[in-house]
Amino acid sequence: MTLKKYVIGFVLSLALTLLAYVVVTGGVVSGTALLWLLGGLALVQMIVQLVYFLHLGEEVGPRYRLQSFLYMAGALVIIVVGSIWIMQNLNYNMMNMSPDEKTQYMLKEHDKGF
């Protein structure tokens, strides 16, 4: 924990924030590529802040913080990616149905059993 590390973390975070902002408002990249780019910039800034502000790399001995963080990150990915995946499939499968058709479809699926 030194002033130098805090300054490095601060400058990098500020640069990454402004870069993400300019990429969106400037309209240089668009579509799916833009989403991946923004997600990537957020992940890089997360790692910067974990290392320089939360000092995750300075832990000695049994690295409980790192272990619990990685476990949390795994569960987080399952929740977020899983939710998006399932809900998008649901939307896709029911896309061209009227509300009545949806009800009929669900009743039919239900009768089939699981």
């Binding site: 924030t17 993400a20 969106v24 989403l35 957020a42 800034q45 997360m46 802040q49 502000f53 939360l54």
Partner: peptide, 25 residues
């Protein structure tokens, strides 16, 4: 200190996912 740094970390994702991606698509 841990709590406050952590809140900034969560905000990065709110800024990116809610706001930046919100106006991008």
């Amino acid at each position: 200190g841990l709590f406050w740094h952590f809140l900034d970390l969560v905000w990065i994702f709110i800024f990116t996912i809610v706001y930046l991606m919100g106006v991008a698509v």
